[in-house]
Design a protein around this nucleic acid. Structure first.
Lengths: 333, 333
DNA sequence: AAGGAAACTGTAATCGTTTACAGTTTCCTT
DNA sequence: AAGGAAACTGTAAACGATTACAGTTTCCTT
């Protein structure tokens, strides 16, 4: 109990060589008697192999890095949960890196991986520009990117067809007789913002619904606060009979504005969120939302990464999930 | 760019010894000319010191492990955010360990720290029994525990006086003329469940309010689902004029039940949550909630840990934060 | 019981750093 | 210009594991 036991100590205690100890810890090709003595020694000393030493020798950290910009968004939470669910059955630990909001930080972070503290990376960048794209290209660790994959990058990718999701929302609104649809989006400068924007335009065209100058609002962020602040007034919202929001948080903000102004959500104005987070079930009226399968994306990303780390020769894979719509009260007449 | 550059390669390139390279990377006590050559070589080769090798030599991983049971709870999210905010200005990486729900897993996890993959631990156990207490005692890594510290353990601790929080809630209800107060709690088997329970009893006594057989409901979990499922009916809730909930998620569930039954939250029945998560601002009516300072707890925990890792001789410290009440609409007449 | 194959074990090199110690250079003082 | 102090640099030994290779033991076959 005094000093931290090393493999040498265990070996001495068991009366065998370090090689034998190492072998029973790993592969286990030892005579039963040996193995027993070694295990006993390990037990008695409370020995745990030093991970740094192991990492150095086998050139693998048994760690996976997860990096995204914000811990605040429930969708990322779901992502993380999916990932850790898969990882808990593996030998890998999860290293969290949320300090990657601006370009410089991302660069630093990606280069930091060069130090080998992680064997793999799961990254979900909210913006991608040339610099980041360049860095991603040069990355030496197996990587899977969640979200929109920039052109010309050959890495594993899992994404969700959010345009399709918006189309489903629009379809649902059209079916239920809504005509004047607004879209409250996050910043256009972000990947999700861009995709959802395009998706909205396309969907509205497809269903022959009119888009006015003011049908689309861009918020400063994908949060409720931004929504409450960015949507000037309920009067403005009254110009529409339905509002699609770029995520559930925004939807919650919008609903709040409506309710505070005695507008009956659902019958008067339909509200649809995206992400289908827990929030949707809690709100009242409950929130119709497009399920973007965040947790599943996380799971798949982790699986892809594990496979890739196992076999670097795999061709780059691209998994695009299909969203679904979960209809609740906020869009009912 | 071919092989991964090592310190030896850099040394050769710069025409100096590895020792010199190491020195400019770390302390920097080199002649300007040397430093410049070394830095140039590092730059050209894109060298990053191998963290495993460094960890092995200096016996420090530069990683901190954060472990708690559930990623789902927004309060833990806030905790995590506080921690990572502090850590981002340090050299430490954050390793997430959420796979610690049952006793066996916790034991395994705590023992796993023996492998030295983390220099410090921040743990927030939802339950603590003898076994876990024993393991915590034997822990060799600097640790700070967030939550209720079991007796006889000498480690740094940050906690929140949740009893006081409940007292504030009761006081607020009393002041606004409520008489029949219910408490919807999580499982009594958990630390927070226990503390809140005692707090409620004490507060009700202090304010001379009556507790009936059925004033306290224990749910199976601290979630909205558990609340919706566990609170049998709105009729049951109607027996009270105010309901304190063990956290905001539960409060959201309760509010949903009430609203779905046309009970006017606030005037008819007051609802108070705990944690003061973002949720509170979004709900409508907005939620009166006891702020348990999760983010701040995270920050302080991280700071305590950094200090402790810096100086192991520090006496065990105990920081208990005071909650505050954030009054919003759900408790207004 | 001898011989050889198969199974196991030990020795020692190695992974990429850091750092004590000794050796070298620089710089200042006289 | 000599001398010594101060500043810098290099050599080599760790850190604690894994593993190739060679050496040993076991066990089976005859």
């Amino acid at each position: 109990m005094g000093e931290k036991p090393t493999i040498g100590l265990v070996a001495k205690r068991a009366g065998v060589s370090v090689a034998s100890v190492s072998r029973v810890i790993n592969g286990t090709l030892a005579r039963p008697a040996t193995e027993k003595r070694v295990r006993a020694a390990i037990e008695e000393l409370g020995y745990h192999p030093n991970s740094a030493a192991r990492a150095l020798k086998v050139q693998a950290s048994e760690q996976i890095c997860l990096s995204f910009a914000d811990v605040g968004n429930p969708a990322y939470l779901a992502l993380t949960r999916g990932i850790s669910r898969v990882l808990r059955d593996s030998k890998y630990r999860l290293v969290l890196s949320t300090s990657v909001s601006n370009e410089k930080e991302i660069a630093q972070h990606l280069q930091g991986l060069g130090s080998g503290y992680a064997d793999g990376l799961i990254i979900s960048p909210i913006v991608t520009n040339e610099k980041i794209t360049g860095l991603l290209k040069e990355l030496r660790v197996p990587t899977v990117l969640i979200g929109t994959l920039p052109q010309g990058i050959k890495i594993d990718n899992v994404s969700i067809d959010s345009s399709k999701g918006i189309e489903m929302a629009v379809a649902h609104l059209k079916e239920t007789g809504r005509k004047k649809v607004a879209f409250v989006n996050g910043p256009l400068a972000t990947n999700p913002g861009k995709r959802r924007y395009k998706g909205f335009i396309a969907a509205m065209e497809k269903y022959k619904l009119k888009i006015n100058d003011d049908s689309i609002i861009f918020l400063s962020d994908f949060t409720s606060e931004a929504a409450i602040e960015g949507v000037k007034s309920a009067n403005f919202l009254k110009k529409f009979d339905s509002i699609i929001c770029a995520n559930d948080l925004i939807a919650a903000g919008v609903i709040k504005i409506l309710l505070d102004n005695k507008i009956i959500v659902g019958p008067d104005i339909a509200v649809i969120g995206m992400d289908n987070t827990e929030l949707g079930k809690i709100l009242s009226p409950s929130l119709t939302s497009i399920d973007l399968r965040a947790e599943q994306r996380g799971e798949i990303a982790a699986q892809l990464l594990l496979e890739r780390m196992n076999d670097a020769t795999l061709p780059p894979r691209k998994v695009e999930l299909k969203p679904s719509i979960v209809i609740r009260d906020s869009s009912q007449l």
